[in-house]
Amino acid sequence: MISLDEAVTARLESHGERFEVLVDPDAALAIKRGEFDDDLEDVIAAEDVFEDASRGDRPAETALEEVFETTDPMEIIPEVIKEGEIQITAEQRREMQEQKHKQLVNHITRNAVNPQMDDAPHPPDRIESALEEAGFKVDPMEPVENQVDDALDDLRPIIPIRFDEITVAVQVPPDYAGKAQSRIRQFGDLEREEWQGDGSWVGVIRFPAGMQNEFYDLVNEHTSGEAETRIISDEDELSTR
């Protein structure tokens, strides 16, 4: 379960009665969209249905039976969320907006590059500043993924930006290959790999282009900077980084 501080109220009025439940805001939106497949108990603050959640008042069981044909809270809670309205305070809305804003900046930073600078990643501060200059406001009630395209449309007049993926070949010396390859291969999609006769490991990894610096840092950390990396172009020509 979640804490009361994390929860918002979902409210349904029906048959002259009011029903309220306390739920995680993101989970509530996922339930309304039919996209929720997690454990309901993990995203609610109380396994209960209220008439007034702020006072802890509960509706009569006869009212539950009349509206939902059951008194089981775990069956009723999703129905209240789906059919009702999600109530959030100004403070909850502000906190949700800040959280979604951070998620949006992180998503764009990890996936976007600057096409005018050899597809170098944009630092988070640059994305932050450009979003502020564009006046883009994150909708706290929408998933971040649904807002990325609108954010990019607002960013393009301000900074050169595009979403892309990159394919990098990396060769790890024998002294580091055993441990390093297990970490490197998890970074993105491992397209192919090969163990060399001298015990070194070669892998070809594809991942969001904005994560280049993070990838190189990982490789250097686990190989003491002795690995070789090459960017593979669309024409499969290798260019040394």
Results as ranks from 00 to 15, higher is better:
51 E>Y: 02
103 Q>F: 06
102 K>P: 06
197 G>C: 03
119 D>C: 03
12 L>Q: 00
173 P>L: 02
73 P>F: 00
87 Q>M: 10
64 L>W: 10
3 S>Q: 03
182 S>K: 15
97 Q>F: 06
133 E>I: 15
94 R>N: 14
12 L>D: 00
94 R>C: 05
162 R>A: 15
49 V>Q: 08
193 E>W: 09
194 E>T: 09
154 D>Q: 15
142 E>D: 14
222 H>R: 10
8 V>H: 03
184 I>Y: 08
216 Y>C: 00
72 D>L: 03
156 R>N: 08
188 G>P: 06
12 L>V: 01
219 V>A: 08
233 S>M: 04
52 D>I: 08
138 V>D: 11
77 I>N: 02
158 I>E: 11
125 D>P: 05
83 E>A: 07
66 E>D: 11
168 V>K: 10
116 Q>D: 15
88 I>T: 10
22 L>P: 09
229 T>E: 05
132 E>K: 15
17 E>M: 02
116 Q>W: 12
211 M>V: 00
219 V>C: 06
33 R>T: 05
157 P>H: 11
91 E>Y: 04
44 I>H: 10
102 K>I: 08
94 R>Q: 15
7 A>N: 06
101 H>R: 15
75 E>A: 01
67 V>T: 13
83 E>Y: 04
75 E>I: 00
158 I>V: 15
204 V>R: 14
152 L>V: 12
29 L>P: 00
18 R>K: 10
109 T>G: 10
210 G>W: 01
5 D>R: 08
79 E>F: 00
172 V>P: 02
222 H>L: 09
239 S>M: 07
31 I>A: 04
211 M>Q: 10
189 D>C: 01
223 T>V: 05
134 A>N: 13
78 P>S: 07
192 R>M: 13
137 K>N: 13
141 M>I: 05
163 F>D: 14
3 S>T: 10
113 V>R: 13
73 P>R: 01
121 P>K: 02
30 A>F: 04
93 R>F: 11
218 L>A: 06
6 E>G: 00
239 S>C: 01
201 W>M: 09
234 D>P: 01
148 V>G: 12
74 M>G: 00
153 D>K: 15
167 T>P: 06
131 L>V: 13
168 V>I: 15
62 T>W: 08
162 R>F: 11
9 T>R: 04
159 I>L: 11
76 I>R: 00
23 V>Y: 06
206 R>H: 06
113 V>W: 11
61 E>K: 12
113 V>N: 14
53 A>T: 09
219 V>K: 03
113 V>Q: 14
67 V>G: 04
83 E>L: 07
232 I>M: 12
239 S>I: 12
208 P>D: 05
120 A>V: 02
8 V>A: 04
81 I>R: 08
174 P>F: 05
7 A>Q: 06
88 I>H: 08
168 V>T: 14
123 P>C: 01
8 V>D: 04
94 R>H: 12
6 E>H: 07
229 T>G: 09
31 I>M: 04
157 P>R: 12
93 R>P: 05
6 E>D: 13
187 F>Q: 07
146 N>W: 11
55 R>W: 04
197 G>E: 14
137 K>M: 11
117 M>F: 13
182 S>Q: 14
100 K>A: 07
117 M>I: 14
239 S>N: 09
131 L>G: 14
209 A>R: 04
59 P>E: 03
230 R>Y: 13
62 T>M: 07
53 A>S: 15
177 A>G: 03
77 I>V: 02
141 M>W: 09
41 E>P: 00
